[in-house]
Computed example of a mutant assay.
Amino acid sequence: MTTDGTWAEYAETLGVPRGSATGTLSILDGAMTSNPWEGSEAGAERIGAELDSTPIG
């Protein structure tokens, strides 16, 4: 998931319809007063980068 895709594209990959993912994130975004994803996204990026750079085998 370290590609520059959107959440809706990732949702489709997981079998969630794009409209459902976009609508859900839109509702959640409107209900939040701060950005709780900031730390999560940074952590996911670090893990993804480490996995990308670690040889298999």
Rank of each mutant, 00 (worst) to 15 (best):
T24L: 01
E41A: 08
T2L: 11
G5W: 01
G39I: 13
N35M: 00
G19P: 11
D29Y: 05
A44K: 07
E45M: 05
V16L: 05
E41R: 08
T54Y: 03
G5V: 03
E38W: 00
M32R: 04
D52K: 08
G30A: 00
T24M: 02
Y10S: 01
I27Y: 03
I27W: 06
E50A: 11
G39V: 15
D29G: 12
E12R: 02
S40T: 07
M1H: 06
A49H: 08
L14P: 02
T24I: 09
G19C: 12
G23E: 14
Y10I: 01
T2H: 10
Y10W: 07
L28F: 08
T2C: 11
G19K: 09
G57W: 13
I27D: 08
W37N: 02
G57F: 13
I27K: 04
E12D: 13
S40D: 07
G5E: 12
A49P: 03
S26Y: 10
L51N: 02
A31H: 03
R46Y: 06
A49I: 07
R18P: 12
W37S: 01
N35Y: 02
A42R: 14
E38F: 00
A44G: 11
M1C: 10
S26G: 12
G30T: 02
D4V: 14
S20F: 11
T13F: 04
G39A: 15
W7G: 10
A31F: 05
T54R: 10
A42T: 15
G43H: 08
E45W: 00
G23L: 12
S34Y: 06
E50W: 09
P36E: 03
E45G: 02
P36I: 07
T24Q: 00
S20R: 13
A11P: 08
T24C: 03
E38D: 14
D52W: 01
G39H: 10
G30V: 04
S34F: 06
M32I: 06
I27L: 11
D29V: 06
G19L: 12
A31D: 05
M1A: 15
A44Y: 08
T33D: 07
P36G: 06
Y10L: 03
P36D: 06
T54Q: 05
I47S: 06
E41L: 09
G43S: 10
W7Q: 13
R18T: 15
T24K: 00
T13A: 13
E12G: 04
E12N: 05
E12C: 05
S20W: 06
P17K: 02
G23K: 07
A8C: 10
E9Q: 15
N35L: 00
A21N: 04
